[in-house]
């Protein structure tokens, strides 16, 4: 029962969507599907409650058990309560406290985390980008050309060269990159169709948990 009901829901709803995609009749496109969408709208607020419950319960337990770095859970819960309260009271438009929190906390914190990538990428490129084989050399040369072609300074440096670095950089993106990407996409697409069919027909059940 624990598995059959979710399985039935997935199969029925999956076929409804297939029907909506392939049956152009009005009863499917408008009448049935529009009514079906109302369920979707109703369900989404429950997902929010579930998310909040999950977050609070996890961090409450971390604090209660005093697990390592449990102090950070206070920060998370305080952030949740303060931001949500201010949002409910003042709204989220420009000039409100939520916008101030976003501009002065979220923006710098998130941007700092992401910008650390530049430093790690630079050291990784320096430490591991070696022309050890023909394949590695091709990758290395392509990477250098793309990096030069992406920035004005690279263009300026290559101006005195007999060939335009932007043209080569664009060719690498338009031809070898595109060919390989398309190949990968076709593979992924066919794989997705196969997996979707297996889910719709109830063959693939790992998403229910506990393997087959």
């Amino acid at each position: 029962m624990k598995k059959n009901i979710p399985l039935a829901i997935v199969i029925i709803l999956g076929f409804i969507f297939v029907g909506w995609t392939f049956i152009p009749a009005k009863w499917m496109q408008d009448d049935f599907y529009t009514a079906f969408l109302e369920f979707t709208k109703t369900m989404s607020p429950f997902a929010v409650f579930l998310g909040i419950y999950s977050l609070v319960s996890m961090h409450y337990n971390r604090i209660r058990r005093k697990v390592p770095k449990w102090g950070y859970s206070y920060v998370t819960l305080t952030g949740l309560v303060v931001t949500a309260t201010l949002g409910f009271v003042y709204g989220t438009q420009a000039g409100t406290p939520v916008q101030w929190i976003f501009r002065n906390f979220m923006m710098p914190i998130s941007a700092t985390m992401f910008s650390l990538l530049a430093f790690y990428m630079a050291t990784a490129a320096y430490k591991s980008f070696r022309a050890r084989s023909i394949e590695a050399t091709v990758l290395l040369v392509a990477a250098i050309i793309i990096m030069l072609g992406q920035v004005p300074l690279g263009m300026a440096i290559s101006r005195s060269w007999p060939i335009n670095i932007l043209d080569i950089s664009q060719w690498i993106m338009d031809v070898p990159n595109l060919a390989s990407k398309r190949g990968i996409l076709l593979g992924v697409g066919l794989g997705s169709v196969a997996t979707s069919l297996k889910i719709l027909l109830g063959i693939e059940r790992t998403y229910l948990g506990g393997g087959d």
Binding site: A125, A143, M147
Partner: peptide
Amino acid sequence: VAHILIIVFI
């Protein structure tokens, strides 16, 4: 400048 520097490092 960062791109050029990375290329120099490589």
